[in-house]
Design a protein around this nucleic acid. Structure first.
Length: 260
DNA sequence: ATGTCGCATTCCATGCGA
């Protein structure tokens, strides 16, 4: 089973890229972030025409997440528990059948948090607290699950071309890394890091200042695997070629292959 | 390099978020 994640930076601006990816790569599941549309504006028909069903948790203008699947999505849960006043659409979870067993998948758009001296950063850290609490509950069920998405976290210096540029940034501050470590220390596996120790593997290149041309990238899109999923990890592939397309997203898709 | 995008507004220019 192939489970991919992609911050698409507006699904309506990138619909041709998306349908091309579904047809060319054909992941079983694709988690999307920053769809930037309300549910009523989600291009469901074009996705169904590619042979996928979809669960959507959208909002006007910003954020918005979705999960696409070749098979039906069950037990869909929109929103990250822990704060009923949070109106930002950043979390969606659903189950998909894989032969005899079910796999729980979440599409995550973790807050950016910049600038760090504002309530945006406090929101990021609090959101990570809620994710840790929720993941802890999922782990107690001892099932196969994958938390995939844009974490807005650069885990280590080797995950940035120029780590010194990110020293004071919300994506790489010590408190951010401590929260990410707490999450992983629950017993989750960073799929890419389970497959290679190589640095220089990036999933995001800024639109500005020729970041792509200079390969000034960062790795911020991750799959965190439950132990039952990590046991079945085969490979991880970053679809870097997507960043070279016309009018690309600033993020590229990344996919894991699980032997279920 | 204040360097680029995408969205929305009372709207053809600007502010916000990334």
């Amino acid at each position: 089973m192939i489970i991919a994640t992609w911050n698409i930076n507006s699904i309506r601006q990138r619909l041709d890229h998306l349908t091309g990816y579904l047809r060319d790569i054909g992941p079983d599941v694709l988690c999307l972030q920053e769809i930037k549309c309300q549910d009523k504006d989600f291009p469901l028909q074009a996705i169904e025409d590619c042979g996928y069903s979809a669960a959507v948790h959208g909002q006007k203008t910003f954020n918005g997440v979705a999960i696409l699947s070749k098979t039906p999505l069950e037990d869909v849960q929109a929103g990250l528990p822990g704060d009923d006043s949070d109106e930002q659409a950043r979390y969606l979870e659903a189950s998909v059948r894989a032969g005899e067993r079910m796999v729980r998948v979440a599409s995550i758009y973790l807050p950016n948090g910049n600038p760090p001296d504002t309530d945006k950063y406090a929101y990021k850290l609090a959101w990570m607290d809620r994710l840790i609490a929720h993941a802890s509950g999922l782990l107690r069920q001892e099932q196969i699950f994958v938390l995939a998405g844009d974490y807005n976290v650069i885990p280590e210096d080797r995950d940035a071309r120029n780590p010194e540029e990110w020293a004071g940034d919300a994506l790489h501050l010590p408190k951010t890394l401590a929260q990410f470590a707490r999450l992983k220390n629950l017993g989750l596996t960073d799929a890419l890091r389970a497959s290679t120790d190589d640095g220089g593997l990036y999933t995001f290149w800024d639109y500005q200042a020729g970041a792509w041309q200079k390969n000034n990238g960062i790795r911020i899109d991750h799959h965190l695997l439950s132990p039952q999923a990590a046991d079945r990890l085969v490979s991880v592939i970053i679809d870097k070629q997507m960043r070279a397309a016309e009018k690309p997203s600033d993020h590229v898709p990344i996919r894991v292959v699980l032997d279920l």
